[in-house]
Simulated assay, not measured.
Amino acid sequence: MRYWLIKSEPNKWSWEQQKAKGDAGEEWDGIRNYLARNNMREMKLGDRAFFYHSNIGKEIVGIAEVCKEIHPDSTTDDPRWECVDFKAVCDMPKPVTLADVKAEPRLEKMSLVTSMRLSVQPVTEDEWKLICKMGGLDG
């Protein structure tokens, strides 16, 4: 299993909306950045992702899971753009803020810190475990 972080502005697509989709999940569509798209191409069923509210809140609020691997993005006819589907797994008991991440020296190389604008990012296993612990989960 690999780990990721996906970002969404909560006024456009929130964690609550993601949870409401249930086990069917939802396309992670509208990504128009090649690196973010390429990260989705690497995802496999069952991979986990932190769901991060960007711009408003700036915090990890939940954990999602890949429930459908790479496929054409339904929001465009341009074949360059693909996406995966995610379903909600669980809330983060204590949301982990960007400030919390930046204050933790062991996370200084995390993509959330070094590539803040990238909307789909890899997360290492050590980063995953530490953030889960920070958020009140076992990992």
Rank of each mutant, 00 (worst) to 15 (best):
C67T: 13
F86D: 00
V61H: 01
G57L: 01
L5A: 02
A49S: 13
K129Q: 11
E65Y: 10
E125I: 10
A88I: 01
D91H: 03
C67Y: 07
E42H: 11
L112F: 07
F51I: 08
D77N: 15
A103W: 07
F51H: 02
K129I: 06
K44C: 14
P10Y: 04
Y3L: 04
E65R: 15
V89S: 03
T76Q: 04
D138W: 02
D91P: 02
E82K: 14
N55T: 15
R41N: 12
K12L: 10
C90D: 11
L98Y: 08
K44N: 12
A36L: 06
V84E: 02
A49N: 03
S8C: 04
H53I: 05
K94N: 11
V66N: 04
L45F: 15
L45R: 12
P105W: 15
R37W: 09
I60P: 00
W15M: 02
A24Q: 13
W128F: 12
E104R: 08
S115N: 13
G30N: 05
K44Q: 14
D100Y: 06
E65S: 10
Q17S: 15
D29W: 14
N33G: 15
M92C: 06
N11V: 08
D100L: 05
T76R: 03
I70E: 08
N11S: 09
D23T: 10
K44I: 06
L130Q: 06
I60K: 01
S8R: 04
L35G: 12
E16F: 06
G46F: 06
T124N: 07
S111V: 11
P93K: 08
P79Y: 11
V66S: 05
T124R: 04
E127Y: 07
W28E: 00
R80I: 07
M40P: 04
E82I: 10
T124F: 03
K87G: 04
L98G: 05
R80V: 07
E125P: 09
F86E: 00
M110S: 13
L107A: 12
N38W: 12
E127N: 08
E125T: 14
K12F: 08
H53G: 01
M134N: 06
E16A: 15
A103F: 09
V101M: 06
